[in-house]
Amino acid sequence: MFESMTYTARRNIVIFGGFLIHLCLGSFYAFGNISPYIMSYLRNRTQETWLVNTQNSWIMNAAAISAPIGSITGSYIERNHGVRIAVGIGCVLFCSGVLLTYFAIQRSLYIVALTYGFITNLGTFMAYGPPVQNAAKWMPARPALAVGLIVGGFGLGAFV
């Protein structure tokens, strides 16, 4: 399929694909909007009736811990196995973290911090870097434009 495409068409597909990946990954940062609902659910439907809204910082602290781990791991996998593998593993972790949060929210804030905070953000940052690096390689004359288009998807993800 790609053999018959021109360089420009391939470059556009790479950039558009990276934009879509980042659009999905950026949804993690809608956490500020869903946080009161998570805390209310945990307070009213679990044994953790003592929770207050400020304790949602546990989730973002877990996310902050996983960000450098995910970035380093994603870069290592991309360098040794390719962009597709690194992004694929990152996206699987991202989706698994969101899925596991469905079950974790019925148990404990700390399990939610592990699933939504750590696992989801680990996947986010494993899949964050490789599309950006790849796009910069596909547009050597204007790498900042390529990176900006893709990272714009990350910011737009929380908005959407």
Score class of each variant (00 low, 15 high):
10 R>L: 14
56 N>K: 07
56 N>L: 01
40 S>T: 13
154 F>A: 05
104 A>R: 01
151 V>H: 02
156 L>T: 15
148 G>N: 07
134 N>Y: 13
88 G>S: 08
147 V>E: 08
29 Y>R: 02
41 Y>E: 04
98 V>K: 02
96 S>C: 14
113 A>K: 05
151 V>G: 08
141 A>V: 12
140 P>S: 03
148 G>K: 07
159 F>K: 11
56 N>H: 01
143 P>L: 08
99 L>A: 15
155 G>L: 09
43 R>F: 04
84 R>N: 12
133 Q>P: 03
125 F>P: 00
144 A>Q: 10
158 A>Y: 00
135 A>H: 09
118 F>M: 09
107 R>S: 13
125 F>L: 06
45 R>Y: 10
160 V>M: 13
95 C>I: 15
73 T>Q: 06
52 V>I: 08
7 Y>H: 14
1 M>P: 12
128 Y>C: 00
13 I>H: 06
110 Y>W: 15
160 V>D: 12
106 Q>R: 15
151 V>T: 15
71 S>L: 15
13 I>V: 11
122 L>Q: 08
56 N>V: 09
86 A>P: 01
45 R>W: 06
8 T>H: 11
136 A>F: 08
74 G>V: 07
139 M>H: 01
134 N>K: 11
45 R>Q: 10
88 G>A: 04
110 Y>N: 00
26 G>V: 09
124 T>H: 12
130 P>D: 04
8 T>M: 14
9 A>F: 05
133 Q>D: 02
143 P>T: 07
67 A>H: 00
134 N>L: 12
79 R>T: 07
76 Y>H: 10
156 L>C: 11
20 L>W: 09
92 V>Q: 04
143 P>M: 09
61 N>L: 04
46 T>N: 03
59 I>Q: 06
155 G>E: 12
129 G>K: 01
16 F>V: 13
61 N>H: 09
97 G>S: 10
130 P>K: 06
90 G>R: 10
9 A>I: 12
95 C>K: 05
85 I>R: 14
116 Y>P: 06
16 F>K: 04
57 S>M: 07
36 P>N: 09
90 G>M: 11
17 G>M: 08
152 G>D: 03
40 S>G: 10
144 A>P: 04
38 I>R: 01
79 R>M: 02
109 L>E: 05
14 V>K: 05
96 S>L: 15
138 W>M: 06
118 F>R: 02
111 I>N: 03
110 Y>E: 09
2 F>K: 15
74 G>H: 03
17 G>C: 11
104 A>P: 04
125 F>R: 05
116 Y>R: 12
